[in-house]
Design a protein around this nucleic acid. Structure first.
Length: 298
RNA sequence: AGGCCCAUAGUGAAAUGGCAUCACAGAGGUCUCCAAAACCUUUAUUUGAGGUUCGAAUCCUCAUGGGCCUG
């Protein structure tokens, strides 16, 4: 009892780009190791985005953090981070294994490496104005406020309005930073991967399936209650169809999915997971063995 | 058979005879509260062979491939 409360909670993480079969794998693991799933997916958070996001509703396994907000509401990494902590704790208290599963690398990062800048909330009033600034003006503003940070920006960030605005926001409200005790987990991070060639052909197949499953009907129903400008509809498989349900928009969707998969791979690489190549027929066996070893270790 | 038009990156398009440019795709990357977002980098000796010219994607000849018109 005592030793149990002292040891760090175990957390299993399954990540990977879209179309690698993360959820199916996570469900298998949950059954085998008495687990509950926590989605790490920035879009499956939304209610009603089912077909386009490839949302699964497994029958015998509990999955947390899907369908929790309306498409009209904004959501962020920091909110996600705050929601996940208590869920992991309660799963653990029930003697079960929490399994974080998803492809939003930033969400996973927020759990294994929470930041104190999360305590600086977005200021919509400030953002409203900053969003009207030109890139040059934003650069000048940050340079004036916080020369050190400005100077440390790389070529990619210095041209990125989103990032500049956030840096300005952090600087202006830096007095509000609260140092929170970040919970530590004994985590095992496994990531499924495949070559772009393999991924892209799986994606292409999924696109067809989603169209056949009635994606367009889902979108039309969503539009009865929500607008294109709502945050939830700024999502792959939805946003491409703003201008109509036609072939060229489908083509655009496919390439957006390809680009997204590439960005996911790039981001996940930063987190240094243990990789499993899904085209390797031995991968499920190897993966199960690794998880079992970790699960049974103290 | 005769006549006319076209050929530029994987695709679609630019370039008064003067540094081959752009979009999209492809590849690589950035990221710590908008992230399925936003942003950065990168990809050709202009169908082929000759010719004119200081200089050719651009003008001329032939070849090849494609399109149109006439019989």
């Amino acid at each position: 009892m005592l030793s149990n409360s002292v040891s760090m909670p175990k957390l299993l993480i399954i990540s990977g780009p879209t179309a690698t079969g993360k959820t199916a794998l996570a469900i298998k693991l949950a059954k085998k190791f008495n687990g509950e799933l926590i989605s790490a997916d920035s879009r499956q958070i939304y209610q009603g985005l089912d077909i386009g996001t490839g949302k699964d509703h497994p029958t015998n396994i509990k999955i947390h953090l899907i369908d929790i907000i309306k498409p009209s509401e904004a959501f962020s990494v920091a909110q996600y981070q705050r929601l996940v902590e208590p869920i992991i704790r309660s799963i653990h208290q029930n003697g079960k294994l929490p399994i974080l599963v998803g492809g939003s690398g930033q969400y996973i990062n927020a759990i294994i490496n929470p930041q104190e800048t999360f305590s600086i909330k977005p200021n919509n009033f400030l953002r409203f104005f900053l969003n009207k600034f030109s890139l040059k003006t934003l650069q000048f503003t940050l340079k004036t406020l916080d020369f050190k940070t400005f100077n440390s920006l790389n070529n990619s960030d210095i041209n990125n309005p989103h990032r500049l605005i956030r840096k300005i926001e952090i600087k202006l409200y830096s007095s509000k930073i609260k140092t929170t005790l970040s919970p530590h987990y004994q985590f095992l991070h496994l990531s499924l991967t495949a070559s772009n060639q393999v991924l892209f052909s799986k994606i292409n197949q999924r696109v067809k399936n989603r169209l056949d499953s009635g994606l367009f009907t889902e979108i039309k129903n969503l539009l009865k209650k929500y607008r294109w400008s709502d945050p939830g509809l700024n999502t792959l498989a939805y946003k491409e169809f703003k201008t109509g349900f036609n072939q060229s928009n489908i083509a655009q969707w496919i390439t957006d999915e390809h680009n997204y998969a590439r960005r996911q791979k790039t981001y996940l690489r930063l987190l240094k997971p243990t990789y499993f190549e899904i085209t390797n027929p031995d991968y499920p066996t190897n993966l199960m063995a690794l998880v079992a070893k970790w699960y049974n270790s103290s």
